[in-house]
């Protein structure tokens, strides 16, 4: 537990260093309003990454989340275009994103197909369905469906208490899921299943249902992320989120969640998504394109994991061990 706190602490320190560094490079960076509003551009990553933390803690992975984002978006658009109340459309779309998660979870829990393969399949399937819905309703792929009512657009573009709504969403969701993971019985079972699914079963924990619910949560995360993106761009597109998978997983792992399961924090994921977003924003202010920034983020991910793997106490032991077992 202490180690995890340390990791989150390290992330916060890194975030502060980041702010100082970019501030020195370009004083405009520290303009508070710009800084806060820049978060709008990447908040959707955090919205999907936070619930994804649950899945990764159970020892799984969900690469279909990007497709769920697009699916949610296009469903909102198509339903609204066909005359449904936009909020009803949102509700239905979120339900469908939860169902998408349930499909993932059920297959993962009841077969022995690896989660990566299952969600790879549903990644194609969900994005395919999104495309079919989009194509079938002859909504052009690139422009998408636009012209949403003002109230809906304000969802992600408005402000409350002087803060942009998406950021409030982000913190709200982060707190909600952090509380659920660390304080509730459900969260505890997610950890136990991730640490040792067999022991969990022998302890009378309903392992399958915990796994299925974790995937449902991750699916819903994709849904919420898709909803915010749709409102933010005030346009519904089936290909929103196609590029989101890798940053989402990066955020979770950078946040300190073990890819092998059993360990992880929601707050870490949240901070990590801000770290990544700030990094992108800062580098962009140093006139790098967003695609170019991925070099830095890639290195960041590898170095972060390397640092986490280095158990400083073990370092001494490693020396003696190295002398003994030298790998061929």
């Amino acid at each position: 537990m202490k180690l995890l706190f340390r990791w989150e602490g390290a992330l916060v320190i890194f975030l502060i260093l980041e702010l100082i560094f970019f501030g020195l490079m370009n004083p405009d960076f520290l303009n508070l309003t710009n800084l806060i509003f820049s978060m709008n551009d990447y908040v959707y990553i955090g919205l999907a990454a936070i619930p994804m933390t649950y899945v990764i803690i159970t020892g799984g992975i969900d690469v279909s989340v990007g497709s769920t984002i697009g699916l949610t978006s296009i469903i909102i658009g198509v339903l609204w275009m066909n005359g449904l109340n936009v909020w009803l459309a949102v509700l239905i779309a979120l339900l469908i994103s939860a169902c998408a998660g349930a499909v993932n979870g059920t297959v993962v829990a009841t077969t022995n197909v690896q989660p990566l393969v299952v969600t790879l399949g549903t990644m194609f399937l969900f994005s395919g369905i999104a495309l079919v819905i989009s194509g079938g309703s002859s909504a052009s792929g690139y422009e998408g469906i636009s012209g949403f009512p003002d109230a809906f657009v304000q969802l992600a573009n408005g402000e409350t208490f002087g803060l942009p709504n998406p950021i409030l969403f982000f913190f709200g969701i982060m707190i909600f899921f952090a509380v659920m993971l660390n304080l509730t019985r459900f969260g505890r079972q997610v950890f136990l299943v991730g640490i040792n699914p067999k022991s969990a079963r022998y302890s009378g924990i309903r392992v399958k249902s915990i796994i299925i619910w974790s995937y449902i949560i991750a699916g819903l995360g994709g849904g919420v992320s898709g909803l915010i993106l749709t409102s933010y761009f005030s346009s519904a597109r089936s290909d929103l989120g196609t590029e989101a998978v890798l940053p989402v997983i990066t955020a979770v792992v950078l946040g300190g969640t073990s890819i092998t399961g059993g360990k992880g924090t929601v707050v870490g994921t949240g901070i990590a998504s801000i770290v990544i977003g700030m990094m992108q924003y800062g580098l962009q202010m140093m006139s790098m394109t967003s695609q170019e920034t991925s070099v830095v983020i890639g290195f960041l991910l590898i170095i972060a994991v390397l640092l986490r793997l280095t158990n400083w106490g073990l370092l001494k032991k490693f020396h003696t061990k190295k002398a003994a077992v030298k790998e061929p």
């Binding site: 890819i259 290195f299 994991v305 793997l309």
Partner: peptide
């Protein structure tokens, strides 16, 4: 370095894609 392959190659993905651009 014992970095899990999915993380290592995910990082490389970002690095190489950035290099390309």
């Amino acid at each position: 370095l014992r970095i899990p392959a999915i993380i290592m190659t995910l990082g490389t993905l970002g690095i190489l894609r950035g290099f390309m651009i």
